[in-house]
Design a protein around this nucleic acid. Structure first.
Length: 603
DNA sequence: GAGGAAAAG
DNA sequence: AGTTCTTTTCCTC
């Protein structure tokens, strides 16, 4: 069975072309974009007492990420330090750049990871352009950005890659004729040219530079992008698979990484894997961490470890509480296989949470004060992220709501805390970072736009969060909390469609059905089948209840004080037509899913 | 659904 | 960096 190929390795699918974007020193760039004069100065963004990130001028002068502010001032006395603890501007910039990139996508497979990374599945665009190529004159090709408008695009030399490659230059840069180019290579060429174009657009229109990776999966695109930063792009070149024991570029590339560096292998998993590979069972109580001794375990060491395969990894990594099939997933990763899809653009966040950490939180007075502060932030965030302009409101409603309406209603409110663990008997403190939480239904009044954030927060703390806190910490005092977090979750779409059964409610219907069946299974003996269906129906009397009863003079202030969300538009020209077209199409649509499906049919 | 673990940036 | 804040996904009960 071992035909020279990597044993038990699956073949790597190469159908997709994925681009991974990573904005260069994002936080610093946001400030530079706001204030261009900062560009030529050493600029550092401060969070707590350290530099969260700094621009490249600052790095040139010896500053680095995560450096203490004191140290930084010593090294570079004229450094400009800006406070970056309020994430609002970063969140807004991130969204803006995201929608800019998304406008280029045909299939809407554009996924944001954190504030400063974006994955884009451009397989469809690349494949379309592949069909447009003239095999006899690859050097003079035209990359088409819109099926609908064939004039939109740019000239490319499809016989060459744009930007850097892995492995490095040499024979890769030689222009090849069609006979020597197989499809994967040509598609990667096209992907690299599209990436180059997008980078230039991002820089010219939005003033942001980024570092980019181009390959066939999220894993490989992200990893390979790291090779040339900042302002660089790298394409992982074929061969991606090898048959006769020859090494392919993917194996060579992935093999050289430390296990913990592979996205998807976090601290805990890496620890378990290293332990197994080093055959060092449980001797790690000595204050020694693996990273501390600089003991590197490379992907190669894991992959070639005697007897290693997906099943072994499942044994090593699996167990109660761990994801099912984790062994197969990790085995895939160390073999350069990652089949996770680039997610579709998401309309509404799954949850919004606000937290803060504290030296010590002990008295009810402190707790109440912090709960209040956190709640005000949370409600403000709700009004920023969950509110959209509503054009079709009568004037009374506009007066009452500022012409906004909720795009989602979170149904659950959650309070979490991180208690500092009591010292052990011997005085050693078992460091635990575990959180505990309690949740409750979120009351409808939090959607009231005629009240001030302050009043709503007051009410929410009194009516929901305080009871939750008592449930979480029944003791009278002495909690010694190091963190509190308030979250809203369980978002229910309200995008002009509340009718059941139009697709997105199918999951809920299944759940409901399951609940009914469960009741039957458990109770079919001595109970009549009670109408269980109303449980999911109640308690949300259709949300349209912004009772515009009293005109609050200060509610407008609240709304205005929230920064205007720059839903693309004001100052910049978006050169593509895709976005506006999709929006027009979307007007009469009941759901984004349906709109996307229809858009795909059109293009 | 509720509560928690792990991962990511 | 086991720091901090935020979000997502997946697990079990």
């Amino acid at each position: 069975m071992q035909s020279g190929r990597r044993s038990n390795a699956r073949k790597r699918p190469c159908e997709q072309i994925i681009i991974h974007f990573d904005y260069d020193c994002f936080y610093a760039s946001v400030f530079e974009a706001e204030t261009p004069a900062l560009r030529s100065l050493p600029l550092a963004v401060q969070q707590k007492q350290i530099i969260a990130t700094c621009n490249y001028e600052a790095r040139r002068r010896g500053l680095r990420k995560l450096q203490p502010i004191k140290e930084a001032r010593k090294i570079c006395p004229d450094v400009v330090i800006v406070l970056g603890e309020d994430l609002t501007r970063f969140r807004n910039a991130s969204k803006d750049l995201y929608s800019f990139l998304r406008a280029f996508s045909w299939n809407a497979k554009v996924e944001r990871l954190g504030f400063d990374e974006v994955f884009m599945d451009v397989s469809d665009i690349v494949d379309y352009n592949l069909t447009l190529l003239n095999p006899n004159d690859l050097a003079n090709s035209f990359f088409c950005l819109s099926k609908a408008d064939p004039t939109q695009g740019f000239a490319v030399d499809a016989s060459q890659v744009a930007g850097h490659t892995y492995p490095g230059e040499l024979q890769d840069k030689l222009p090849l004729d069609a006979g020597q180019l197989h499809a994967l290579r040509l598609r990667l060429h096209l992907g690299s040219h599209l990436a180059m174009h997008l980078r230039h657009q991002l820089e010219q229109v939005k003033d942001y530079t980024c570092t980019v990776g181009i390959s066939t999966s999220k894993l490989l695109a992200k990893l390979v992008g790291n090779l040339n930063k900042p302002k660089g792009q790298t394409t992982l070149m074929p061969p991606y698979n090898s048959d006769v024991g020859e090494s392919d570029n993917v194996t060579t590339f992935v093999d050289s990484h430390e296990v913990g560096k592979i996205p998807g292998i976090g601290f805990k998993l890496a620890q378990k894997i290293r332990e197994h590979v080093l055959r060092r069972p449980a001797e790690f109580d000595n204050g020694f961490v693996y990273g501390g001794t600089k003991e590197q375990v490379l992907v190669r060491d894991v992959r070639t470890h005697p007897g290693m395969n997906a099943e072994v990894l499942e044994k090593v990594l699996g167990g109660p509480g761990t994801p099912h099939g984790i062994g197969g997933k990790i085995w895939g990763l160390v073999n350069g296989v990652d089949e996770t899809e680039v997610g579709q653009a998401r309309e509404v966040p799954k949850q919004i949470s606000i937290e803060d950490s504290y030296m010590r939180l002990d008295t009810m007075e402190e707790v109440l004060r912090e709960l209040h502060t956190l709640t005000r932030s949370l409600i403000t965030r709700m009004r920023i992220d969950l509110l959209e302009d509503d054009d079709e409101l009568n004037t009374d409603s506009v007066a009452a709501t500022g012409g906004k309406r909720w795009i989602a209603h979170p149904k659950t409110l959650r309070l979490s805390s991180r208690p500092r663990p009591p010292l052990n008997a011997d005085g050693t403190r078992t460091r635990t970072f575990n959180r505990i939480s309690r949740s409750a239904p979120s009351p409808n009044f939090i959607f009231n736009l005629t009240e001030t954030v302050d009043n709503l927060a007051e009410k929410l703390v009194a009516e929901v969060l305080l009871p939750l806190f008592r449930k979480l910490h029944p003791e009278k005092s002495g909690w010694n909390l190091s963190l509190m977090n308030i979250a809203i979750t369980n978002m229910e779409d309200t995008a002009s469609d509340t009718r059941a059964g139009t697709g997105r409610n199918i999951a809920r219907m299944f759940k409901q059905q399951d609940d009914v069946l469960k009741q039957w299974r458990v109770e079919d003996r001595d109970r009549s089948p009670s109408p269980a269906a109303d449980a999911t129906m109640g308690e949300q009397p259709d949300q349209e209840d912004h009772l515009g009863n009293k005109e609050q003079p200060d509610e407008g202030v609240q709304l205005k004080s929230t920064p205007p969300i720059t839903h693309q538009g004001s100052e910049d020209i978006i050169p593509r037509s895709q976005d506006s077209r999709a929006e027009e199409i979307g007007q009469g649509w009941d759901s984004d899913e349906e709109m996307c499906a229809f858009t795909i049919l059109l293009v």
